[in-house]
């Protein structure tokens, strides 16, 4: 089920990739096209008829409320990410298979945006029994992340983490048959300030990670325009 949803999300985002690739190509004025470009909304949507009979509202899936602890022992919640966009993934410190590659790809994204306070990063451990706060802190420092406020390495009870993994469509689950004891897809999700998923990317594939690098400025532009309009 989770996996199916994940594939669906990937398909949707791949379609989106197609259109972002095509759009600039068709337009004579590249900047103009980019200015109106918008990322898709990923996940289930609900169409709610309006009481006054006006055009129905479409409500997109959002990330539920969460409460985690980061590598500094600080509690982090949705409020920590208010007004920001963030990129999230699921890993564990002793992961024998895909994590090092995945985290090195996420590090590549972090390095590009570390000077931009509007973008935050959030890595969840899917092995909270092993990855205590000191283990997470050591991991973050070894990866070169000095500032926990920019890239959180977070833990929470097992069920909380796995429910969140489903919400972010990153398909993490316990699987004793897999090396390390957990199966996960290595996906990155891009979240907007309204807690909606705007992209899901295969973190093991540098081309997909490039697409994330290209999508981030598009989302930041949208957020900027909305914040201006709200003033």
């Amino acid at each position: 089920m989770t996996f199916f949803r994940f594939r669906q999300a990937l398909t949707i985002s791949l379609l989106a990739l197609g259109s972002t690739l095509l759009l600039p190509g068709c337009s004579a004025d590249k900047n103009n096209a980019a200015a109106t470009e918008r990322l898709p909304f990923i996940g289930e949507r609900e169409v709610r008829p309006r009481a006054d009979g006006g055009p129905a509202d479409t409500v997109y899936a959002t990330i539920p409320a969460f409460r985690l602890t980061n590598q500094d022992g600080k509690v982090i919640t949705n409020q920590t990410f208010a007004g920001k966009v963030y990129v999230t993934d699921f890993f564990f410190a002793t992961c024998p298979s895909i994590c090092p590659k995945m985290q090195s790809e996420l590090l590549r994204v972090y390095d590009k945006f570390k000077g931009d306070p509007r973008v935050l990063f959030l890595s969840h451990t899917i092995d909270p029994a092993h990855d205590s706060i000191p283990v997470l802190r050591d991991y973050a420092q070894r990866l070169g992340i000095a500032d926990a406020a920019r890239w959180h390495f977070a833990t929470a009870p097992h069920d909380t983490i796995f429910a969140l993994a489903r919400a972010y469509m990153t398909a993490a689950q316990v699987d004793k048959g897999v090396a390390g004891g957990f199966a996960h897809s290595g996906a990155f999700a891009l979240i907007d300030p309204q807690r909606r998923i705007r992209g899901v990317y295969d973190g093991m594939n540098p081309l997909e990670v490039q697409r994330l690098l290209d999508d981030l400025p598009v989302l930041l532009r949208e957020v900027e325009q909305e914040q201006k309009a709200a003033k």
Partner: peptide
């Protein structure tokens, strides 16, 4: 064979 920071 480049490794990863101070992790690998």
């Amino acid at each position: 064979g480049e490794g990863l920071k101070r992790l690998i």
